[in-house]
Design a binder for these strands. Sequence first.
DNA 1: TGTACATCAGTGAACGCGCGTTCACTGATGTAC
DNA 2: TGTACATCAGTGAACGCGCGTTCACTGATGTAC
Lengths: 214, 214
Amino acid sequence: MSMLAIVDTVNIPYHHGRLGEALVEAAIELARPRGPDDVVLRAASRIAGVSHNAAYRHFADRDSLLRAVCEQCMTRLALLIETRVDELPADADPALAAWARLYATGRAYVEFALSEPGWFRTAFAVPRGVSLFDPGEGVGSGGLGPYQLLGEALDGLVESGAVGPDRRPGAEYAAWSAVHGLSTLLLDGPLRDLSEAERAQALDKVLAVVAGGL
Amino acid sequence: MSMLAIVDTVNIPYHHGRLGEALVEAAIELARPRGPDDVVLRAASRIAGVSHNAAYRHFADRDSLLRAVCEQCMTRLALLIETRVDELPADADPALAAWARLYATGRAYVEFALSEPGWFRTAFAVPRGVSLFDPGEGVGSGGLGPYQLLGEALDGLVESGAVGPDRRPGAEYAAWSAVHGLSTLLLDGPLRDLSEAERAQALDKVLAVVAGGL
DNA sequence: TGTACATCAGTGAACGCGCGTTCACTGATGTAC
DNA sequence: TGTACATCAGTGAACGCGCGTTCACTGATGTAC
């Protein structure tokens, strides 16, 4: 009967060839609307058109799959930041340009959280033992994660003279916390019912306070 | 046989008398180590010494119980903030006193997150439709939630002249976001592996940047 | 070029789990007379 | 003060759910000769 026949009708060869990636792609879509709890081995296998045990050829367990999805989500956050920064118009004044990059980084971060809530939540549902500081984790196209991109923006402020080098240490904690906190408060927290306009005001204020305090 | 006999041995009368509260207390302990996912009707009933259906006399469903637990967690956060602010030594200079209150508020927030991780997560696992802005939700002893306590601290800055009134609007967004973001990054995010000393530095920097930018 | 065989990548059935929820029930309590 | 009865607050059994994981298996692939 042929499972072969059945399988042929949907154009999936018995040897899938890239089932591992297909499972990750499926799991990413599962995570997309709501988050990491919806990353389910059986559902991902279903989407990939494969029995649910087949997944165990490619991932030791559900957690391994989730880990792969987390990394992808972190990468996508980094990619959006890079995109938004690259879209910036050129600015002759290096200090102004550096500020613009920092603002764009922060705005992109919040934009990602609000436009891709499930991915944002998944990116930060990091299984223990994975760190943003590890090279290779959560990388964007240039091999940098969101944290490194933020670091670059802050370095730019110092290099351009906009911010004194004595203020540089720990600056990413402040900038990152502010933007991350706003994202989670708007997404899942008590600020979730803010109107579009109120959100924009809140974001402006957060960025202004961070910029003023750096 | 007496279920009565059985029941007597553990000193729980058939009519419990305060089962609703007992269930909430049990659920709060369930949430304490890890968070809202561990708030389970059956487990709470078990702890309260009652069959799991009895819970339905007091809560329409699991979500109602969780809602009650959320509110309690928010209240406890508010109480810790009040405690820490009240512990502050008197300061003759009203501006310095106002700054000290803001700092204490922020430190207490992060302290709560790190010392009571499950409660912190639960406080912000707010079921849709509950807002921190509602009076009566998430109240401390004075009837104020964390958000209102923060607002008071900020008002104090303006009243004491430490901060111009033109900078007041939206200030809670900035302060709250920074402290909330740091809490979640340290608790569940990529900063979770920071050492005690690094955490303290990060917190100092976050507070300094917010204070400088307000 | 053909064949034997190891290995790889799937299959389908089954297990155990704990959950939320519903059902029909019964013992305890409180109230009207 | 006693009694009938409504109501309240529990009980225990059962259902259905989807999950992660394991088992023994088999068809497809690739390689050595």
